[in-house]
Amino acid sequence: MTEVSSSATLLGKGYAWSTSPRVLRSLLPAFSLAVILIAIFYLQPRAMSPIGMKLLFNLAVPIALATIAQMFVLAVNDLDLSIGAYVGFVVAVGSTMLSGGIAGLPAMEGLIPEPAPWFLTTPLSGVLVLAAAIGVYALLGAVIQLRNLPSIVVTLGMSFVWAGLAVLVLPTPGGSAPTWLRGLMTLQVPIVPFPIVALIVIGLVVHLLLMRSAYGAVIRGSGGNPRSVARAGWSLVRVKMAAFGLAGLFGVLSGLALLGLTTAGDANIAVRYTLLSIAGAILGGSEFVGGRVSPIGAVIGAATLTLANSFLTFLRLNPDWQIGAQGAILIIVLALRVLISRGEARN
């Protein structure tokens, strides 16, 4: 696959080509994706067409963005249990205020004078709300660092806040995606289907942002060794704010991508994203601690999880077994990784 080759060239830059455990470890996510993709093509040759690839991968785009968001939080040794509810909140805001302004809120129905003044219908209000949400994420980072709070507790609490806000904004499923968003997510690109282009762009952009920039190294460093980063004169509060703010930003992008695909909102649409994003990041080679993350791996991990689901459907597996089978796929990949890590430790 294109993704595989692009990640391979990027990985190849720094290290000599060898079968060293480190290279193996980096290639494992791409390898798992390739195996599942081949299995799908075998079971369902129809998937091997541009339209088939589009259908297979398009729901991977919002999951990949949520996984990237989770990865930023993992990079600073924290865990975000609110990302699913947050994405649901973004979908709710996107399907109401971002397309119809304040007047687009179901709660405002009947209260808006006719004709509605511009400041009630401008999508700007939606942009402001989403910007504020990113601000809240950055603030959470500051609070977690300053008060030395466990992120699991803070974000678990926030998940109820986001879920509640989402229901307030959009009490019953409805609303509609802004036309530009629908247009973007159904974009026709020649030769390569749009979702695959989007996934590659997401992976590369975040790779440059986090793995190749100086501040990216600081963010990862604060996960690996916070004390030395602080001694080097960096403000750990600011680093956490940056990491959480980026997570908030990618959460917004994830919600918007999801909304562009579904075309209408539902406050509970992304409940599963919390666990999927963690699984995707880990599957893609990130670690829970130590600032060890991989943006390209995260994108591949998210795509693998999405494909695993399709694979199980094509297998005609009884739904009662599907969650278990998904878990089994995860365990197999992680077991392989542990084996490789052991090899790494021995070297």
Partner: peptide, 30 residues
């Protein structure tokens, strides 16, 4: 989101019709 993925897989499987009991009246429209 799971049901949306399921519907996309059913499209790929080449069914002529999909009979649907939906998880959301709006969320599956795409």
């Amino acid at each position: 989101t799971e049901q949306a993925a399921q519907i996309q897989n059913l499209i790929l499987e080449g069914y002529d019709a999909i009979v649907l009991n939906a998880a959301s009246p709006e969320g599956l429209n795409g």
